[in-house]
């Protein structure tokens, strides 16, 4: 068999993406409305954040600018899951109807092929919003701009993204075993809202759960500490990239295990 390497997958993804965007643009009204919706959603999130902050000028010892940084960080970190892995939301419907079988007839990785089908443009607005917020907070806090810090920022943003993607993979793949996986997904997705807050607000058992069981503390809190408190970075922050890769890999294996165990529907 001819080899299908990373280059092959990248080029296929690009081609599918281009075609998909082309066809989305052709539905102009749709495109405009969803762009508008995207801006409104982000604004609403931002306003909620401001109101909350108005009432609590510091949260767990974090002041406004640091919170803003964390907020921007989580927005950017959530972009990849929104843009590239949004089809996870459709998984349970396709699995239940049996339409999922179509992803198994192509000579490529099923996970890749399934995810490549949907690219959600809405994530891009979030990305722009998030970057804007980070830059603003960055200047206000007065973090120096050096190549090393920028490199760190990128690595830890990617780390944070991996955790969120993995979380959604786990949640979505439960549909291969249980009927009510919709609840699991919604719960996981809601959990991500906590990522915007310093995880030090969680006490005792919650702190343990959100760090090690459902690791949302890794979606923004631990990775961002590397930038925010460079003199006092917890060990968990430093090893979070490794954790992220491991956690993503496990979620991928879990997802693929679901595909293998799943025996499709009749007819």
């Amino acid at each position: 068999m001819r080899k299908r390497g990373l280059g092959f997958y990248a080029s296929i993804y690009r081609k599918i993406l281009i075609q998909d965007l082309k066809s989305k643009m052709s539905y102009r009204a749709d495109f405009v409305i969803s762009t508008f919706g995207m801006i409104m959603t982000n604004l609403a999130g931002f306003v909620t954040f401001m109101i909350l902050f108005h009432n609590f000028p510091t949260i767990s010892g974090w002041d406004y600018d640091h919170m803003l940084f964390l907020y921007g960080f989580s927005l950017v970190a959530l972009t990849p899951v929104q843009c590239f892995f949004d089809n996870n939301w459709n998984l349970r419907f396709q699995v239940q109807s049996g339409d999922f079988i179509k992803y198994c007839f192509r000579p490529v990785n099923v996970f890749f092929y399934f995810m490549s089908e949907v690219f959600d443009v809405k994530g891009l607005g979030q990305l722009a919003f998030g970057i804007g917020t980070i830059v603003y907070a960055w200047i206000k806090i007065g973090i120096p701009v050096t190549p090393l810090i920028i490199a760190k920022l990128i690595v830890f943003l990617l780390t944070a993204s991996l955790f969120m993607i993995a979380l959604m993979n786990f949640a979505a793949a439960t549909c291969f075993w249980i009927k009510g996986s919709g609840y699991v997904m919604v719960i996981m997705f809601r959990f991500k809202d906590f990522a915007k807050y310093p995880s030090s607000i969680f006490q005792g058992i919650f702190s343990v759960i959100f760090t090690f069981i459902i690791p949302i503390a890794f979606i923004a809190y631990y990775p961002s500490l590397v930038i925010l408190t460079p003199d006092n970075v917890p060990l968990l922050s430093w090893i979070s990239p490794l954790f992220g890769i491991l956690f993503f890999y496990l979620s991928y294996r879990f997802w693929m295990l679901g595909v293998r165990k799943y025996d499709f529907t009749g007819s």
Binding site: G98, C104, P107
Partner: peptide, 19 residues
């Protein structure tokens, strides 16, 4: 599975596999 898929074609009536 992947290797097998290179050498077969499949159609399930009423279930489109196209984009």
């Amino acid at each position: 599975r992947t290797e097998n898929c290179e050498n077969i074609g499949v159609v399930f009536g009423q279930r489109s596999q196209l984009w």
